[in-house]
Amino acid sequence: MFELRRLRLLHELALRGTLAAVAEALSYSPSTISQQLAQLEKDAGVALLVPDGRRVRLTEHGIALAAHAARALELEEQIRGELEALEPGVAPVRVAIMQTAAQAILPRALSLLAEREPALRVEIAEMPPEEGLFELSARGFDLVVAEQYPGHTRAHRAGLDRDLLGGDPIRLAVAPDDPASTLAELRDRPWVMEPGGTAARQWATQQCRAAGFEPDVRFELADLTAHVRLIAAGHAVGLLPDLVWAGQMPTVRLHGLPGDPTREIFAAVRRSSASHSGIRAVRDALRDAFADRGQLAPTRAETAPE
Rank of each mutant, 00 (worst) to 15 (best):
M1E: 10
L9C: 09
L9I: 11
L13C: 09
S31G: 12
I33T: 10
D43G: 07
R55G: 14
T59E: 14
H61W: 08
I63V: 11
A64C: 02
A67P: 04
R71D: 03
L73H: 07
L83S: 14
E84Y: 09
L86C: 12
P92W: 05
P92R: 05
V93R: 02
V93S: 03
A96F: 04
Q99L: 14
A101V: 09
Q103N: 10
R108E: 07
L110P: 08
L113P: 06
A114I: 07
E123T: 06
I124S: 12
M127S: 12
E131D: 13
L136K: 12
D142I: 14
D142K: 11
A146P: 11
A146R: 10
I170N: 01
A175M: 02
A180N: 07
T182Y: 04
L186C: 05
L186S: 02
D188G: 04
R189P: 08
W191A: 10
G196I: 06
G196D: 04
G197D: 07
T198E: 05
W203C: 03
A204G: 07
T205W: 07
T205L: 05
Q206I: 07
C208W: 05
R209G: 10
P215A: 09
L224R: 07
T225N: 04
V228D: 01
I231M: 06
I231S: 04
G234F: 01
V237Q: 01
L239A: 00
L243A: 04
V244C: 03
G247M: 05
M249Q: 04
M249W: 02
M249H: 02
V252R: 00
G256K: 02
L257Q: 05
P261S: 04
E264L: 04
F266Q: 09
A267Q: 09
V269W: 15
V269E: 13
R271S: 13
R271N: 12
S277K: 13
R283F: 05
R283Y: 04
A285S: 02
L286N: 02
D292F: 08
T299D: 01
R300V: 00
R300P: 00
E302K: 02
A304D: 07
